[in-house]
Simulated assay, not measured.
Amino acid sequence: MRFVSRMRLGFVAAVVVGAGAPWLWAQPGAGGPPRKITIGLVAKSQSNPVFQAAYAGARDAARELGPKFGVEVAIDWQTPPDEDAQKQAEAIEQLARAGAQGIAVSCSDANTVTPAIDKAVELGSLVMCFDSDAPRSKRMCYYGTDDEVCGRKVMAELAQAMDRKGTIAILAGNQTAPNLQKRVAAVKDELKKHPQMTLLPDGVFYHAETPEQSVEAVNAAQSTHPQIAGWAMVGGWPLFTKNALRWRPGEVKVVAVDALPAQLSYLESGHVHALYAQDCYGWGFKSVEILLGKIVKNQPPHNERMIDDLTKVTQANAAEFRRKWDQWLK
C-alpha cells in the first residue's frame, strides 16, 4: 500500500513537527519557542494496515494542527509489531512516565490495558481510546465505530447479497478484542431475522490479526466446509493482501469492514459485495485533535463516546473512495 512505505515501523518511532526533542519542555512566550507536546499512539499492531492509516492521520494532524494550537507536536508511535495486550500496557505506562501529555490507545484486551490506562492518568497523562475501547478505565473518551451497528450492517448487507438464504461463516480476528466481540454478537443477532440463513456450526473463525493468518483461516474453512455461501468479515484482514479469496468472483458472497486501498481491488474484481469503511485515518487525526484541544485549551470532548459513521463502499463508488485515500495519504 502507498502509505506503508512512508512509515517508520520500528517499535519506538517519533514524528516531530519542527526541531527539538519531544520531552524538552518549553512554555510559549514572546519570541520564545513553542511549547512541545508529546502524544503517544498505541495501536493494536504495526502489521495491520488500518493502524498504519491511523498513524498517517496522527502525523498529518501533528503537522497541521500544531501551528494552529501554537505548539510543537511529536507523535510517539509505541505500537507492538504484532498484537500483544501486555506490551500495549507496558507502552502506555512508559509513555506516561516519559512525560507524554496525551496517549491514544486501541485496546487489544481491555481488561489487560485498563490498569495501565488508569496508572497513566494518575501520572498526569490524558488518555483516550480509539477503535477499541476500555470503558471501565479512566480514559477521557472514545472515538470510533459503534460495533453493534457495524455487525448488524455487515450481516444485513450479506443477507441481501445472498437472497436471504444459505450458510454463512464469520471471520472474527482476535477473540479477546472487545470491539470484535461486540461485532460478532451483533452479526449473530441480526442473523436471527433471516430464518432461511444459518451460521455454520462452530462457524466463527478467530485468528491473529495479520493478512497471512486471516487468509489461512478463510481458505482452510472454505475448503473444509464448501457449503459456506457467504462470509461476514468483521474486519478486513485477508483483503489487505493479493489473491486472498480463492474462488471465482461472486461464487461466495463477502461483506467486510474497512475499505483501504488494497481492499478496493476485491470490490472492483467482484470478489467482495460491499465494504463498510471505518474512519481509520481519522482515528489518528481526530485523536490528536481531541487531545490537543484538552491539553492546550482545556476543551473537553463533545461526548464521552464519539461515533464515526460507517461508509458503505461498493463497485459503484470504489473509484471515488480510492481518490479519497489518495488525498488523505498524498
Rank of each mutant, 00 (worst) to 15 (best):
P67G: 10
P28F: 07
A56E: 10
Q196R: 13
A89R: 02
E212M: 10
Q227W: 09
P81G: 07
T112I: 15
A262M: 11
D309L: 12
D258E: 13
V71Y: 02
E304N: 12
D258F: 01
R305H: 09
Q222L: 15
K119I: 09
V154D: 03
R97L: 13
P201D: 13
R6H: 11
S223P: 05
Y276S: 03
E83R: 05
A220N: 15
P28W: 04
V121L: 09
G203R: 06
G29T: 12
E148C: 07
I103D: 05
V154Q: 06
W247C: 10
E268D: 13
T145P: 08
T145N: 10
A56L: 14
G57M: 04
P115M: 07
G31P: 06
V12Y: 06
A172G: 10
G284V: 11
R97V: 13
F205A: 14
M1N: 12
G235V: 11
A26F: 00
D202A: 14
T311S: 12
C280L: 06
K242V: 09
I168W: 01
L267P: 08
V215P: 01
A316M: 07
K87F: 01
A220R: 15
R136V: 06
I37M: 07
V15R: 12
Y266K: 08
S132P: 10
A134R: 07
A319T: 14
P33S: 14
S108K: 04
